[in-house]
């Protein structure tokens, strides 16, 4: 199944490049647009892994709502749109880079040690599992209560955001 491999590597490289763009871009709006690429890439990865429903939710919620929220946030805080070096980063970026690389090294060592050589088998059962019907059965049967709790959490977040952001 070399098509799948090629698709994966194309998507993965694009995602990593875009992610670097998010954290290195000198323009806040560009960073948000790079984020769109990463999020879309993640959706494509989900489709590769036969999780269609999650992929579409990812597109709708993340790209449709969250990125728009970010753009509003950028607009309302009048973030500097200029391109001066270092304006958007603080003075600990070298230390941050070291820590990030260190954590990455540890993680990769752990993953290679734990899951080296394990394969995902793309069977018919997996395709069946990706269907929205299966997901919704699981969501509304086994996870009904967490689902309700999450809806309460969303309500609380809504109220909290309104309380925080209103002027008084």
């Amino acid at each position: 199944m070399w098509e799948r491999d090629i698709a994966f590597w194309v998507i993965a490289l694009a995602m990593m490049a875009a992610a670097l763009g998010v954290v290195r871009s000198r323009n806040v709006v560009h960073a948000a647009l790079f984020l769109v690429v990463v999020l879309a890439g993640a959706a494509a990865i989900y489709i590769l892994l036969v999780a269609e429903f999650v992929a579409w939710v990812q597109v709708l919620i993340y790209i449709g709502a969250v990125v728009i929220l970010f753009l509003f946030g950028i607009m309302l805080t009048r973030a500097p749109m200029g391109t001066e070096e270092g304006k958007l980063d603080n003075d600990q970026r070298w230390a941050a880079g070291v820590v990030a690389l260190f954590v990455l090294g540890v993680l990769i060592a752990l993953l290679v040690d734990a899951f080296g050589g394990t394969d995902i088998k793309f069977t018919n059962a997996l395709v069946e599992q990706g269907r929205t019907r299966t997901v919704s059965n699981s969501l509304f049967r086994d996870f009904l209560v967490p689902f309700e709790v999450v809806s309460m959490l969303l309500l609380a977040a809504l109220v909290g955001a309104v309380v925080l952001a209103r002027r008084d």
């Binding site: 820590v99 990030a100 260190f102 954590v103 540890v106 993680l107 752990l110």
Partner: peptide
Amino acid sequence: FASVGVMAL
């Protein structure tokens, strides 16, 4: 993050 990394290591 640094200390989590150290602990994981």
